[in-house]
Simulated scan of single mutants.
Amino acid sequence: MPTSSKQRMIPLLAATFPGVVIILLLFSLDYFQLQLVEKFLLLAAFVIVPLVIILLKYDEKNTAQRAIYWAIKWFQFPAALLALVSVMSSTMWGLAGTSIPGALSLGWLLLTLLLGLYGIATMIIHKGKIAEIAIGAGLVYFFIGGVWFTLYQYQWTFFQATPATHALSSIHFHFSSAIVPIFIGMLGRIMAKKNWYPWVVVIDIIGPILIAIGMIFSKPIEYIGVALFACNIVVYTTYLLTYLKRNVLYKKATVFLVLSCLAFYTVIVVSMFYPLLKRMFDLTILDFIPIYGALHAFGFVLCGLIGWVYLVDSMKKQSSIPIG
């Protein structure tokens, strides 16, 4: 039914190499005077989304879904470049306050719209499969992240939320809201049927919305959303580690997926000891943001995606193991 993941993997992985180089330059060179939140958004554009695209599968018989897939594949890198130029024009080229950064961000908004349409198509085609619904919801959340990015680049106020809140909301939807449902959907493709799994997916879809609403309107709602979301990730990581322990053949995948899980648990531990560390070393929350960001973006998300790419590839080579 779907095109082989291995066949699609080679050109897509090749397409990620320029993005990886660009991200390394953005994070290492002082020339790029970008805010940390902007660097993480560009990490999503150049590296995270291409890895997600590798994991997508489409029905050869569905012309619309196949067309959207190929549009996403070929437009991803140009859209990421437009996002980079948009950020640089507002931060480095003195065009902040004009409509130019916002207009340039529309390229990335279009790409995330295509991802959202692909997600909706996935949910419609596989309406009986809860794992595919989770993946489709994650793709839709990319579009919401794209909307927040455009609002940030236009410097518009929305529901009394500042542009800084727009940037944080965009990060939230590009990394947590989109990625966690995709991870849980990938887990659903390989796991034995469990009665609790549909509830995990439902909470996973509702949680990001609660967090986003809470960030703008109500802190208690945000805390509830974060708690539900964190509990879901605990369920996901626990089951995944158990699965990997039973299936020792997936060595490359296991390394990256274990690192992903460890990064999440490290974030939990650091959060628990934050008050103590704050007093001992005279630190502020601003000192911890880069730590949280790096652990989540590079650890949980990036390592997790690489791990799933390896795992899917390994399963494809073992034709006796179905994944969808």
Rank of each mutant, 00 (worst) to 15 (best):
F158M: 06
F158T: 00
F158P: 02
F159K: 01
Q160T: 08
A161P: 01
T162E: 15
P163W: 04
P163S: 11
A164Y: 07
T165Y: 05
T165P: 03
I171K: 06
H172G: 08
F173G: 00
F175A: 07
A178Q: 01
A178F: 01
A178H: 03
A178S: 00
I182G: 01
F183E: 00
I184Y: 11
R189W: 06
R189E: 15
R189V: 01
R189S: 10
I190R: 02
M191I: 05
M191K: 09
K194Q: 13
N195T: 07
P198G: 10
V202W: 14
I205N: 10
P208F: 13
P208G: 15
L210A: 09
L210Q: 08
L210M: 08
I211H: 08
A212V: 03
M215A: 09
K219A: 11
I221E: 04
I221Q: 10
E222K: 14
I224Q: 09
G225F: 08
G225I: 00
A227K: 08
L228Q: 09
A230G: 06
A230N: 06
C231Q: 11
N232V: 04
N232Q: 06
Y236I: 02
Y236T: 04
Y236L: 12
Y236M: 14
T237S: 15
T237D: 15
T238R: 10
T238F: 11
T238Y: 11
L240C: 06
T242W: 08
T242H: 14
Y243F: 09
Y243M: 02
L244S: 02
L244G: 05
K245M: 07
R246D: 13
N247C: 05
Y250F: 14
K252R: 11
A253E: 02
A253F: 01
A253L: 01
T254V: 03
F256S: 00
F256G: 00
F256H: 10
L257A: 00
L257G: 02
V258M: 12
L259C: 07
L259W: 04
S260F: 08
C261E: 12
A263P: 01
F264Q: 01
Y265K: 13
T266S: 14
